[in-house]
């Protein structure tokens, strides 16, 4: 006699790897996810590989070709110091993406645990702490980033910190909301009844179930971070010469708009595509994680 007839007869269920593959295929059918992912992938490839195969370094000057027009040797022309714009664009992508990814990683690393603790503990800590977070949200993000960057001083590291501080509240609020709904689940109570310490409940039982919206938020926040960094660099607070990010290239190139339109337009286009890519990726991921928002299934 079998003790558990219902445990028998496991039909040909797909293995984990097969399921992962299937969900990736499914994801590619989502146009937002496919296009967004493609745009982001191109930038990463450009940063990681293309820089090495370009004939000119980003800071190599050619005094014979100042503000040169696009041609065979300089595909996008040269700037006012005879530097290859394409090389500088790729190098700018490295810096822009570093600031974008770095600031968002920093914001998530600080904001997510704070949201976990605030949501789980509740009470006075939650009430006081969340009002502090609200006060950050109350200020316009660009103005706040500008102020913090101005206080900290110029340079990309300080820019990264300034953007991270501005991006923290979104993560904290998001995770806190998730925790509030997840912590009423029986499995959280079950973990507590097993004698699990609070950190284990937070990081093993609550965080993995709250992570999907965090990933979406991170992708959207990278878009915001890139545009904020560009804005700060445009007004001269971010990258300092000879470093150049897309924002500072637009700033300088703006002065030569009539002589060499690609100088400003190329980095501006890159900012546009990068932000578009990350936003589409984020929105696509949101739809993928939450099929109800696509109106199917």
């Amino acid at each position: 006699m079998t003790l558990a007839p219902e445990s028998l007869g496991r039909s040909s269920r797909p293995s984990r790897r097969q399921r992962l593959f299937r969900s990736m295929l499914d994801a590619l059918r989502n146009p937002l996810l496919a296009v967004g992912g493609f745009l982001v992938l191109i930038q990463l490839v450009a940063v990681l590989f293309v820089g090495h195969i370009l004939p000119f370094g980003p800071n190599t000057m050619d005094y014979n070709a100042l503000l040169g027009a696009p041609g065979a040797s300089h595909l996008l022309g040269t700037d006012e110091l005879g530097r290859d714009i394409l090389s500088r664009l790729v190098d700018g992508a490295r810096l822009s993406l570093s600031v974008g990814l770095g600031s968002v990683a920093m914001a998530a690393l600080i904001g997510v645990p704070l949201g976990l603790v605030a949501g789980y503990l509740g009470g006075a800590f939650d009430a006081i702490f969340m009002r502090l977070i609200d006060s950050i949200i109350a200020l316009p993000p660009l103005v706040l980033a500008l102020t913090i960057a101005a206080v900290l001083g110029t340079g990309l590291v300080n820019t990264t910190i300034a953007i991270a501080i501005v991006a923290i509240p979104a993560f904290t609020r998001l995770v806190r909301g998730q925790v509030l709904s997840l912590k009423t689940n029986d499995y959280v109570l079950a973990a507590e009844s097993l004698g699990a310490p609070t950190w284990l409940i937070l990081f093993r039982h609550i965080l993995p179930n709250a992570i999907n919206p965090v990933i979406v938020q991170a992708s959207l926040a990278i878009g915001f971070a890139i545009i904020t960094e560009s804005s700060l660099s445009f007004i001269g607070l971010g990258a300092q010469p000879p470093q150049s990010t897309w924002g500072s290239m637009v700033q300088v190139g703006f002065q030569y708009l009539e002589l060499q339109p690609f100088y400003a337009l190329a980095p501006a286009t890159m900012i546009f595509l990068a932000v578009l890519g990350f936003n589409m990726l984020g929105e696509g991921l949101r739809q993928q994680f939450d099929p109800a928002s696509r109106g199917i299934k």
Binding site: A190, A196, R204
Partner: peptide, 24 residues
């Protein structure tokens, strides 16, 4: 203080669809 003692007393919940963490 009660955490080590929880070893002696366990609980089984009503809804096995919500009492098991879906991520484990």
């Amino acid at each position: 203080q009660i955490r080590p003692i929880r070893r002696e007393m366990q609980m089984i919940f009503q809804d096995p669809f919500s009492s098991l963490n879906p991520r484990m």
